[in-house]
């Protein structure tokens, strides 16, 4: 079991690197969706002591929302705004990737120092991977110009939080997780609409232009 958890965690870390290096919006969306599905599988595989009902619910909601609904919403926004299919990075792809490797190191260091609550039996790699996913999400929001890729970054943060929550999959976590998922769903829904409005207002979705707005 530990073996599969480790494999999944490494796969999640690799999807993060792909997120940093990929130059096409579509592949960013697909990658973050794949990451969500991986997290769903992780919830099933990582459930210590047999599958509880709430574990299955969590995994199913994760896979359906992040693997199907979010990509569908984002692809619709992409279609409706007719934007160019290339990511516009503020920090280049190569530099992003190198920073990603650096972030992995930092996350492992933090993960090794972070005191975990007693009685939690998470894989030692899970916390660093969750932190890494979170930081990659933040990085995407800062270092990519398009509003859509910033939504992808937001989703990556969400994935990181979910991964973090999975490490402490205690009984009461279900409610919290579902609440966060609902928030994320609403956020992506609203962001889709906002992206549409930004693109109608400015003819593109470069979020940097928003700073030119005055009241």
């Amino acid at each position: 079991m530990d073996f599969w958890v480790n494999c999944l965690v490494v796969l999640i870390a690799m999807t993060n690197l792909r997120l940093l290096g990929s130059s096409r919006v579509v592949s960013c969306v697909h990658t973050v969706a794949f990451q969500g599905v991986l997290l769903g599988v992780l919830a099933i595989v990582g459930a210590s002591g047999g599958l509880a009902a709430h574990g299955i619910v969590l995994a199913a909601v994760n896979i359906v929302l992040k693997g199907l609904v979010f990509p569908w919403l984002l692809m619709r926004a992409l279609r409706e705004t007719h934007l160019r299919r290339e990511v516009e990075p503020a920090i280049g792809f190569g530099a992003s990737m190198l920073l990603g490797v650096l972030l992995i190191g930092i996350c492992l260091w933090i993960g090794s120092r972070l005191p975990l609550p007693v009685g939690v039996q998470a894989s030692p790699l899970l916390v660093p991977a969750a932190l890494f996913t979170l930081m990659v999400g933040l990085f995407m929001i800062v270092a990519r110009r398009k509003a859509l890729t910033q939504v992808v970054g937001y989703l990556s943060i969400e994935n990181g939080i979910t991964a973090f929550g999975l490490g402490f999959a205690l009984k009461e976590a279900l409610l919290v997780e579902l609440g966060i998922l609902l928030d994320a769903f609403m956020a992506v829904f609203v962001m889709g609409i906002i992206i549409f409005h930004i693109s109608r207002e400015f003819d593109h979705i470069d979020a940097g232009e928003l700073s030119a707005l005055k009241d």
């Binding site: 290096g21 490797v101 992995i104 492992l108 090794s112």
Partner: peptide
């Protein structure tokens, strides 16, 4: 111009492997 990115991805994978081993 995209080839270096592919190779950097390989470097990143290898660096991740090193980090996992050293940890």
């Amino acid at each position: 111009v995209r080839v270096p990115q592919l190779l950097l991805a390989a470097v990143a994978c290898a660096a991740l492997a090193v980090v996992l081993v050293l940890r």
